[in-house]
């Protein structure tokens, strides 16, 4: 262990701590360039902005821990919003609407999980297919993409995204609650232990008596639920059901989760890491907006940042394999 430390070159240092350094540089740069950046109001707003994508990313993190990926979250976010606003439009209560929305998340999770664990299909292919189907369902349902606007939005519906409890925006509270819940699940319960074991070595896990099919399917279900929850918050924020609203969050959620993997010492995805990744991307976007950079530059920056994250991830993985002599 010690000899490894002493031989750690600058390259290794950059590989392992470069992300923090980059984050620091970005933060300092933005606070110098824009006085509005480092204000309580802006930072709270930043948290509110990233809450939706972070909740999606938390669900995605669970699936990534299992060794898979869930691209269908992009569709679930939109579907949940449409489901909720439809129920409200038809005069249903908020609670019923939320339940229906969450049920769609469960449905997608069950389908994804079953296809991945029972039919042994590649998670990428499975979830990109459910993403495509989910997206087209939204377009068909909204007759070509017309959003569902509510004539008289219920007050409590608005509260989800715009309300505050004790000065803290409700979306931030939701974010923290999901974080706490998943954190306990991953770090303290046997479920989390099993999920990590499966992602690290599925054969050894099965031979240790872990029922990997159930455990992994549940991860996909939780991912679906998280995405649906994000969809509920999003539809409340825009006060309508927007088809394909989740597309924009998908890539950010993936990027945040992989960034989380990078900053972990053993290359293991974690909630804290995902939180950091999400913050990083959020700060980038928030700063660029404050600097009045046009949105399409932001898109490029995001793609670049994520490719950069993936690059470091792959290099770290290669380096670990050299160390362990695989």
């Amino acid at each position: 262990m010690k000899s490894k430390f002493s031989s750690m070159s600058i390259k290794n240092l950059l590989l392992n701590y470069g992300v923090y350094l980059a984050f620091l540089i970005v933060c300092v740069a933005f606070s110098l360039l824009s006085p509005a950046f480092l204000t309580t109001a802006n930072l709270l707003d930043l948290l509110r902005q990233i809450s939706i994508v972070t909740v999606v990313a938390f669900g995605m993190t669970l699936v990534i821990i299992s060794g898979g990926i869930d691209l269908s979250t992009g569709a679930v976010v939109g579907i949940a919003g449409l489901a909720l606003t439809t129920v409200l439009e038809k005069g249903g209560g908020l609670l019923v609407g939320c339940l229906v929305a969450l049920l769609f998340g469960v449905l997608f999770g069950v389908i994804n999980g079953t296809l991945v664990t029972r039919a042994n299909m590649n998670p990428f292919i499975v979830t990109i297919a459910t993403l495509l189907i989910g997206n087209s369902l939204q377009i068909v349902y909204t007759r070509g993409g017309l959003p569902i606007y509510l004539m008289i939005p219920p007050k409590n519906f608005m509260f989800i995204a715009h309300g505050r409890v004790g000065g803290i925006p409700v979306p931030v509270i939701i974010l923290l609650m999901i974080f706490g819940l998943y954190y306990l699940l991953l770090q303290r319960s046997s479920y989390g232990r099993y999920l990590y074991a499966i992602g690290s070595n599925i054969d050894a896990s099965e031979l240790s008596g872990i029922k990997y099919r159930k455990i992994v399917t549940f991860a996909y279900i939780l991912s679906g639920i998280s995405a649906a929850l994000a969809g509920i918050v999003l539809s409340s924020r825009v006060m309508s059901g927007q088809p394909l609203a989740g597309e924009a969050y998908l890539l950010d959620a993936i990027g945040a989760s992989f960034m989380g993997t990078i900053i972990s010492k053993v290359g293991r995805p974690s909630l804290l890491g995902t939180m950091f990744g999400s913050l990083f991307i959020g700060v980038m976007m928030n700063g660029l907006t404050l600097l009045n950079v046009v949105f399409y530059w932001q898109e490029f920056a995001k793609g670049f940042l994520i490719l950069f994250i993936l690059l470091i991830w792959a290099l770290q993985k290669a380096q670990r394999e050299v160390v362990t002599g695989k």
Binding site: Y196, A197, S200, D203, A204, S205, R268, T324
Partner: peptide, 16 residues
Amino acid sequence: KEGLVGDFSICRNITL
């Protein structure tokens, strides 16, 4: 391949 979860600690492997 089939016995150990390499990224887990000794403790976690023993109780798996």
